[in-house]
Design a protein around this nucleic acid. Structure first.
Length: 324
DNA sequence: TTTAACTTCAGCGGTGGGAG
DNA sequence: CTCCCACCGCTGAAGTTAAA
């Protein structure tokens, strides 16, 4: 049996459930489908999940005050005393993560596209920013459900008040472009989002819900587009793999076996993470020796990685062609 | 168990600025 | 002037958690 992707499954969900804008149910469904897609797309991710090295949690709270964010889905290594539970036939257990390796926010633009898309764009940017402030190396992604039906029955409007979307094709094309244009991290550790996937559907939300369909022809993203849902799955899986799952960390003995660039990136994440903890303690004027030690250790390991890169590929270690 | 209090969410509409 | 559209913050039902 071949894997069924989240874009098809969310359409089926819309057929079988009543969409309500005030409910987080559709967002939650999207996230679980994406989780299944990632488990299917990447062996290292699935193996880590099956062995319980990583767990997922929905509605995960990050930060406090103005930089508070409730994240739809996070994945990371489990906390020390976490209750871990495998449920159904999903290959990953649910539980409290110690750190965040992956964070996903699901959003939808079903009607009033012109206004809603701006709001969702802000949401995605601010989500990625806040997430990275608390978990510097977190891989972040947004799943966007975009409606292309010409008519839409909003449960928030009066009975019989059906919204007519004139020029819906243009609206959807511009909405997709807007999410494509959001700045990407491109595999680097950055405050930007790593990927955004747009799922375009035709959903009137009236009683004949059977009409709901996945839109695959333009203006829906095409297969090579980075906002195409399946491309998005690949991007997220790949960054996740490179940053957290490949190699064994900055262990000098294993340098020969792994890609030094991913070791370097990963160690920078460790330094940033330690700096985040130390900085917070400094702000609260309550610095622990443990945090200072940890910061020093991580910087030392970063130094070791840099030296190894220099030793292997630096000017001293190889014949330089030509003159200067 | 039921009920109440709280949080979250996409979308609604008032508003103001710019174009015609 | 009028018309249009983007911006911004508020809304209120669904869902969740806590209380009774």
């Amino acid at each position: 049996m071949s894997h069924r992707y989240g874009d098809e499954r969310i359409v089926e969900w819309l057929r079988e459930n009543r969409y309500h804008p005030r409910s987080p149910a559709h967002g939650s469904a999207s996230c679980m489908f994406l989780l299944d897609d990632l488990l299917s797309a990447n062996n290292a991710f699935r193996e880590a999940a099956e062995s319980g090295d990583i767990v997922f949690q929905e509605d995960f709270d990050v930060g406090s005050g103005a930089s508070r964010w409730n994240t739809d889905l996070v994945v990371g290594p489990p906390a020390e005393n976490a209750q871990i539970e495998f449920r159904g036939d999903r290959a990953i257990a649910e539980g409290e993560p110690e750190r965040v390796w992956l964070a996903i926010d699901a959003k939808s633009v079903m009607t009033e596209h012109g206004k809603a898309r701006r709001n969702r764009q802000r949401d995605i940017n601010s989500f990625a920013d806040i997430m990275h402030r608390h978990y510097p190396g977190a891989v972040t992604g947004g799943v966007l459900l975009i409606n292309m039906a010409e008519q839409f029955r909003s449960p928030l409007r009066d009975e019989g008040d059906i919204t007519e979307h004139d020029r819906i094709e243009r609206l959807v094309r511009e909405t997709v472009e807007m999410f494509r244009d959001i700045e990407r991290a491109n595999g680097k550790v950055s405050p930007n989002v790593d990927g955004v996937g747009c799922i375009v559907v035709d959903h009137t939300n009236s009683d004949d819900g059977s009409a709901t369909a996945l839109v695959e022809e333009p203006p829906a993203p095409q297969t090579d587009d980075m906002v195409h849902y399946r491309e998005f799955v690949n991007i997220i899986a790949s960054v996740l793999d490179n940053r957290w799952l490949t190699g064994t960390g900055p262990d000098l003995d294993s340098f020969a076996e792994v890609d030094l660039e991913s070791v370097l990136n990963r160690q920078i994440v460790e330094v940033a993470s330690a700096a985040s903890t130390l900085g917070k303690e400094a702000r609260e004027q309550n610095v622990s020796g443990e945090s200072v030690d940890s910061m020093s250790t991580e910087i030392g390991e970063l130094q070791a990685v840099i030296e190894e890169i220099d030793r292997r590929y630096g000017e001293e270690g190889q014949t330089i062609d030509g003159d200067d």
